[in-house]
C-alpha cells in the first residue's frame, strides 16, 4: 500500500465524507444560500471606505445609486489605484489619482467621455470653466452620477447660475426626441430581459443617443431643432426593427394559442375514447 502524505489522506477522507454528506443532503444542501450572495470580494476601496464615517464613507453610498455602479464602473476606474490591494490601493506609484481640483474635473471625466468633454469645452459652460462656470459634477453629480437625460436641464439646476428661459426653449425642442429615445431604450431593455439579442440595436441606440447628447451642451436653438429632426429619423429605423420583433412574437403567441387549444382538444378526445372502453 502506498503511503500518502498526511494532508493527502486527510483530503481524501474529507472528500469521501463530503460525498457521503452530499448524497444524504442531496442538492438541498448544495443550494443553501446566504443573503450575502456576493462571495466575490468587492474592491478594497469599497471595503474600507464603506466603514468610514462622514465624507470618507458617504461616496460609497452615493456611488451605489449611480449609473457608474449600475454599469460596474468602480472607484478605481476614475480615481486610479490598485483596488485589489488594500495596503497599496491609494499608492500614487500604483496609479492613484485622488480627487481632482475643480478645473481638472472635465479632463478627469473626459478620459472616458472624450466626446462629451469636447462638446462641453466648446460650450458656454466650458468656456466659463475656472471663472465660476459649472463643470461636469455641477449638473451630473459627482459620486451619485446620474444618467445623462433632459431631466438634468431643469429650473433648479440651471437657475443656480442664470435664468432658466433659454434652457427651457432648448429643452422643449429636444423633448420629443428624448421621449423617443427613452421609449426605444425601454423596449430594447424589455426585449433584452426576455433573451432577445439586442446587442446591435442597443449599440445603434447608444450611438444615436450620444449624438443627441452632444446637443445637451448646445445653446443654438435652430441647430438643436434641425439635429433633433435628423435623430428622430434614425430612431424611426430602430422603431421599425423593434416592431418587426414585436410582430414575430405576436405571431408566436397566435401559433401557441392554436397548439395549446389543439392539445386540450386532443386530451378531451382521449378522455372520451377512454370512456367508451370503461
Amino acid at each position: 500500500m502506498t503511503l500518502l502524505p498526511q494532508h493527502t489522506r486527510f483530503r481524501r477522507r474529507a472528500t469521501f465524507g463530503a460525498l457521503i454528506f452530499t448524497l444524504l443532503a442531496g442538492p438541498q444542501a448544495a443550494t443553501a444560500a446566504t443573503a450575502a450572495a456576493g462571495e466575490q470580494p468587492e474592491s478594497a476601496c469599497i471595503q474600507c471606505h464603506e466603514t468610514l464615517p462622514d465624507r470618507l464613507g458617504a461616496p460609497v453610498k452615493l456611488w451605489r445609486a449611480s449609473i457608474h455602479a449600475e454599469n460596474g464602473i468602480s472607484c478605481n476606474a476614475c480615481h486610479g489605484g490598485d483596488a485589489k490591494d488594500a495596503a497599496d490601493a491609494m499608492n500614487r506609484t500604483r496609479g492613484f489619482l485622488g480627487a481632482p481640483k475643480e478645473a481638472e474635473v472635465p479632463a478627469f471625466c473626459g478620459r472616458c467621455h472624450p466626446g462629451v468633454m469636447k462638446d462641453y469645452l466648446l460650450s458656454a459652460h466650458g468656456k466659463a470653466l475656472g471663472k465660476g462656470g459649472p463643470n461636469c459634477v455641477t449638473c451630473h453629480g459627482n459620486h451619485r452620477v446620474v444618467k445623462a437625460s433632459l431631466e438634468l436641464i431643469n429650473e433648479k439646476n440651471c437657475s443656480r447660475c442664470h435664468s432658466f428661459e433659454r434652457a427651457r426653449t432648448i429643452r422643449a425642442a429636444m423633448q420629443q426626441t428624448e421621449s423617443y429615445v427613452v421609449g426605444i431604450d425601454a423596449r430594447i431593455a424589455g426585449f433584452q430581459a426576455e433573451g432577445v439579442d439586442t446587442d446591435r440595436l442597443g449599440k445603434g441606440l447608444f450611438a444615436i443617443r450620444n449624438r443627441f447628447h452632444t446637443l445637451f451642451h448646445e445653446v443654438d436653438v435652430s441647430l438643436v431643432k434641425r439635429e433633433s429632426a435628423r435623430i428622430d429619423a434614425e430612431l424611426g429605423k430602430l422603431d421599425l426593427e423593434l416592431k418587426a420583433i414585436e410582430d414575430a412574437r405576436a405571431r408566436r403567441r397566435v401559433v401557441g394559442g392554436f397548439v395549446v387549444t389543439g392539445l386540450l382538444l386532443l386530451a378531451w378526445l382521449f378522455h372520451l375514447l377512454k370512456k367508451t372502453y370503461d
Binding site: 430581459a193 426576455e194 433573451g195 408566436r252 403567441r253 401559433v255 401557441g256 394559442g257 397548439v259 395549446v260 392539445l263 386540450l264 386532443l266 386530451a267 382521449f270 378522455h271 375514447l273 377512454k274 372502453y277 370503461d278
Partner: peptide, 30 residues
C-alpha cells in the same frame, strides 16, 4: 387501450400547460 388512453389524456393536458408557459409566459421562471 384503457389506461394507455388515460396516460395520453394526462400527457396531452401536461403539454397544453407546458406549451402555454413556453408560448405565453416564457419569462415566468427567469
Amino acid at each position: 387501450p384503457n389506461y394507455a388512453l388515460q396516460d395520453l389524456t394526462s400527457i396531452s393536458v401536461y403539454f397544453a400547460v407546458f406549451l402555454a408557459v413556453v408560448f405565453f409566459a416564457p419569462n415566468f421562471l427567469f
